[in-house]
């Protein structure tokens, strides 16, 4: 096998050293640092972008939370306003109701009073008419004039009796 021919050992090793050292110098001095730099820059950029994204996300979160809070506050306020309005309405209604019923009571009282006085007047009228009727009737029947105040007293007495009898 040509591999074991010692004639070429020196040349093989010599050129291996030359080429490998050359490769090592090119790689370690130029190619690999450049590659490392590229990757580091990319890593930095990615990390930077991620940090930015995270910051934006937090900001969005904050905005969302404040929005939520405001919404909750607004809802609470609206509820309170609704309750106030309904309370006020209730109160007003109650007051008006009371006032109206008071007025109504008053009117009823007045009307009753009027009715009473009218009744009284009617009764008084009735009494005097009845007195006259009784006077004239007794004059016709008895042929003698009965004193006016006597007739009145008799009518009064009779009315009183009927009233008491009616009541009893």
């Amino acid at each position: 096998m040509p591999q074991f021919n010692p004639e070429w050992f020196a040349s093989q090793i010599f050129w291996l050293i030359v080429t490998f050292v050359g490769l090592y110098l090119i790689m370690s001095r130029v190619a690999l640092p450049r590659m490392a730099q590229i990757m580091e820059e990319r890593q930095d950029k990615i990390e930077d972008d991620l940090a930015k994204a995270e910051k934006l996300r937090q900001e969005a979160e904050e905005v969302y939370q404040s929005y939520e809070q405001q919404l909750a506050e607004a809802r609470q306020q609206a509820q309170k306003m609704l309750k106030d309005a309904s309370d006020q309405l209730d109160k007003e209604q109650r007051e008006r109701h009371e006032a109206f019923s008071k007025e109504l009571d008053q009117k009823i009282d007045e009307a009753e009073q009027r009715i009473d006085s009218a009744k009284q007047q009617a009764l008084d009228n009735l009494q005097s008419v009845a007195g006259e009727v009784a006077q004239q009737a007794s004059a016709k029947l008895l042929g003698e004039q009965v004193a006016k105040d006597k007739a009145d007293a008799a009518v009064k007495d009779a009315m009183k009796r009927t009233q008491e009898g009616g009541q009893a």
């Binding site: 070429w8 040349s11 093989q12 050129w15 050359g22 790689m27 190619a31």
Partner: peptide
């Protein structure tokens, strides 16, 4: 004998390709 051989040539080519 440090002759530049066909083997040496392909070592150089390998270095060139990698570079």
């Amino acid at each position: 004998n440090l002759s530049f051989t066909n083997s040496s040539l392909w070592m150089v080519i390998a270095v060139a390709i990698i570079s």
